[in-house]
Design a protein around this nucleic acid. Structure first.
Lengths: 243, 243
DNA sequence: CGAGAAGTTGACACGAGTCAACCTCAGTGG
DNA sequence: CCACTGAGGTTGACTCGTGTCAACTTCTCG
């Protein structure tokens, strides 16, 4: 994942990383160029808001570099992170196709570059290129699947299982191999991890401390390295040793 | 909802009730007829399975009468009801458009009639009638929105709030006005309510008993009547009196 | 170096799951 | 028509996981 099988450098320029996005899967390169040409690039500083829950949908986004969190805010200001997205991910696919208000807010976790297609433009492209439409629908199906799994997990699993799972997801989506393990390559505070797993910062902190003691993780300020994914998976699944 | 504003009889024959489905919204009546003509009706006894989580997608369904539950089963057999659907509702829209395996199982709660469009047939229709496609995408967007809200609720709300909310949803989706309140017009066991709210049967039972004592509900075997939706909403929202 | 953000840890309380015993009703067969 | 049976439901006792709060430490950055 850090290196590219074609041997070229990734995440360097805007080109290659983004054209690997699911948005372009199976698409003729002429069409890729046309679609890419229609995009407006945009950069965000860490912490900056790309869009807010409840806003009308203005554009479809694809992340070029950096990471964003998609979160829902409760009436009393508590934040629940629904997922995080990184390079190549399509953002707010559903809403764009259906002209609805946005179900989540999108906020940069680190500095980001995103490509934006204003709604009219992406709709026009989608009308002419069915494959583009299918690709967007495909990611919607993926997100739906994820959401339903998440509902099941929140209903039936313990906090320890959910935190373990959140770490595994992060390692998969934002992981970078380092010596002895996989570094989660995004600033990851305890509070954020807690919001991802649906728990409190204190419980998240305690779990990380425990797992670090047990050698499953290596933790630091805003930083987690997964040393033993296998044992984490054990903790996420049936919870023998976790009790 | 029991009577129709056009004064005609509803839910009598297969025609009128189903053609009110979001699937046909904004559609020319000739097209409605064409689409309806392509459907295969099917009946299910209570408890019968329409499809299973993980199966390949065979058809798009619209409920004609009765209710179904869509649920996920955990590896160890526990069941989580994701939602219930009733007359007019579109089922497994996402999966059909994207040829994926089904994310949930669909099981009849009461005796049901459903219309089914085998995948190739619905895809062919969708290709010729963009409005049909948009209508399916619209319900997908709705479901996505619901799922995300549910994630937020499971992460931040107490069991009491979630049970109250589940009852409100049921009253809205499956309610029938009776003297003094709204009867939830589907067999609703404590276990099922618990699965809807993500809690245990015991806790659900205790909450119902308490709210019945307080005059918010009237409860019986497999039966709940909402007497005071307003107070239930209070319990679902900020939880002053519930603590 | 100071200030504040990030993280840790212990004490405590309480919500909610678990289990066992019990009640109550609907349907069935004698 | 009544007794039986089993599913559905209730309730109390108990336990434990987690959230809450407070005090404290440690790191980072200006």
């Amino acid at each position: 994942m850090a290196l590219c099988e074609n041997g070229g450098l990734m995440r360097q320029s805007s080109g290659p990383a983004v054209s690997d996005s699911p948005l372009f899967r199976g698409m003729a390169s002429a069409v890729v160029d046309e679609v890419l040409g229609a995009a407006t690039p945009r950069t965000l500083a860490a912490g900056q808001t790309l869009f807010l829950q409840g806003d009308p949908v203005e554009a479809l986004f694809v992340v070029e570099s950096g990471r964003l969190k998609l979160s829902q805010v409760t009436p009393d200001g508590e934040e629940v992170i629904v997922r995080t997205v990184g390079p190549g991910d399509i953002v707010v696919g559903v809403a764009v196709l259906d002209k609805r208000t946005l179900p989540v807010s999108g906020i940069a976790i680190s500095e980001c570059r995103v490509l934006a297609w204003p709604r009219p433009r992406i709709l026009e492209l989608a009308a002419r290129h069915p494959i583009l439409r299918m690709n967007v629908i495909g990611t919607i199906a993926d997100r739906m699947h994820d959401s339903l799994s998440r509902i099941r997990e929140l209903s039936t699993e313990t906090v320890a299982q959910r935190v373990a799972r959140a770490l595994l997801r992060l390692a998969r989506d934002a992981g970078r191999p380092v010596e002895g393990g996989t570094l989660i390559d995004q600033p990851l505070g305890r509070q954020e991890l807690a919001e991802l797993a649906g728990t409190s910062m204190f419980t998240a902190s305690r779990l990380l401390a425990r797992w670090a003691r047990e050698g499953v993780l290596e933790v630091g300020r805003q930083r987690v390295v997964v040393l033993s994914p296998a044992r984490l998976e054990g903790l996420a699944g049936d919870d023998e040793s976790a009790r």
